[in-house]
Each structure stands twice: as C-alpha cells, then as structure tokens.
C-alpha cells in the first residue's frame, strides 16, 4: 500500500527531504528560547512569475541576541536583469560580488532556516518570491510559519490608536516610529537586520501588556 503512495511522489533531492524532516519533530517551546529567522530578498521587480531574486539576507534571533557570525548573505546569478531596479538594490549584473546559482542558493537558504519561524516585512511578497523559486527548481513550498512585521506592528498599537494606523507601513516608516538606524537600507542583509531589530522592539511592546502567547504572535 505504501508503494502506491511512494510511486506518486516526486523524487526529491536529499537537501529538500532534510529540510522537511525538521518539521516532523517540531515542538513549540518558549518564545524566549525559540530561534527566529528574519530575512529579506532583493528582486528584479514585483512580479512573482517574471521577476527573480537577486539576493537573500537573513539573520537569526534567539532570545534577544543576534549573532553576527550566524547571518546569511547570498547573491544569485540570474538571466533576467532589469537595469531600472539597480538604483534601489545596487546589485549589478556583472559586479564584483560572488554569485551562486539559484539551486545553490536554495540549498543554503533551507539549511539556514530549517524549521525556524520566519520574520519579514511584508512577508507575503518574500514568501511568494521564494516559493516561485522553489517551484522553478521542482521543489515544494516553504513549510515555515511566517510573521509579518507590518502586521505585528499594527497589533502592538493600543486599540484606541488603531483608527489612526496606516494600512501600509513601509520599513522606513517603522524605522522612524521605532527609532531604528537605517543602515544599509535596500540591501537584503541590511534590511534583514533592520527587520530583526524591529521585530524585537515590537515583541517587547507586545510583551509588556500581556504574557505573549504563540497563538497571538502567529495569528
């Protein structure tokens, strides 16, 4: 009976199976000791089918600490290149940065994130871009839980101020609101670190009012 099931399943490469394996034993632990990964992507544009990821930056957070030597910074070789977006991300088609293939990037990224909860600003966009990239390489979708800092910020505001909230907070808005230095804005790693700091600041604000629960955080 199991054979029938197996035959229908695609032959996935080992690194993908390793990645899936992490989720089998995943248990919810205390938020204070959980590893979160804040990440950001720089892309050639906003169309998930047409555009490509040029760079991924990620940092991991455990407790209130970010370890500099445990960050991820990758640049990806792509055929699609849109000169008009260079002014935003600064990545040239044939720059001096060391670039790797999409598949290599996926391997590194999955090995880095494992089953951690992912934090991103406007997480939906980054999630779609990564999932598209996985699809192109004949892999499944990301299994990780996502936390969107824009959404989380709205929740951190007291109910009486909710009326004044903007629908859409850019990362720059949050930097202003939460007094975070905009160092290396618009590089994937720079934005990942900014997102991580913003995440920690919002967490502390949420935690002040109630004992922070997972349900609330991931909702």
């Amino acid at each position: 009976m199991l054979n029938w099931f197996k035959n229908n399943k695609k032959e996935y490469p080992d690194f993908w199976l390793d990645y899936l394996n992490h989720f089998k034993s995943k248990k919810r632990t205390d938020i204070k000791t959980t590893r979160f990964v804040a990440f950001d992507t720089e892309t050639t544009g906003f169309n998930k089918k047409e555009d490509r990821i040029l760079s991924i930056g990620a940092v991991s957070i455990i407790g209130k600490t970010i370890k500099v030597n445990q960050s991820l910074e990758i640049y990806i070789e792509q055929d699609i290149f849109k000169p008009e977006t260079v002014k935003i991300h600064g990545i040239l088609k044939h720059g001096s940065l060391e670039k790797i293939s999409e598949l290599e990037a996926i391997k590194l990224f999955l090995a880095y994130i494992k089953d951690s909860d992912l934090v991103a600003h406007h997480a939906g966009f980054d999630k779609n871009m990564i999932n598209e990239m996985l699809l192109r390489n004949n892999l499944g979708k990301l299994k990780n839980k996502f936390i969107d800092t824009g959404h989380l910020y709205n929740k951190s505001k007291h109910i009486i101020y909710r009326d004044n909230l903007k629908e859409h907070y850019s990362l720059d808005d949050l930097c202003e609101e939460l007094n975070v230095a905009k160092t290396d804005r618009h590089t994937a790693t720079g934005d990942a670190l900014i997102t991580a700091v913003i995440f920690l600041k919002i967490l502390s604000r949420l935690d002040k009012r109630k004992n922070l629960e997972w349900d609330y955080l991931l909702k």
Binding site: V68, S71, L72, E73, T189, G190
Partner: peptide, 10 residues
C-alpha cells in the same frame, strides 16, 4: 561569504 553586517559593525 560576504558578511555586510560584520562590516557595518566594524
């Protein structure tokens, strides 16, 4: 691997 964060910290 390039580590921009380390560069900014430096």
């Amino acid at each position: 691997m390039k580590n921009s964060i380390a560069e900014r910290v430096a």
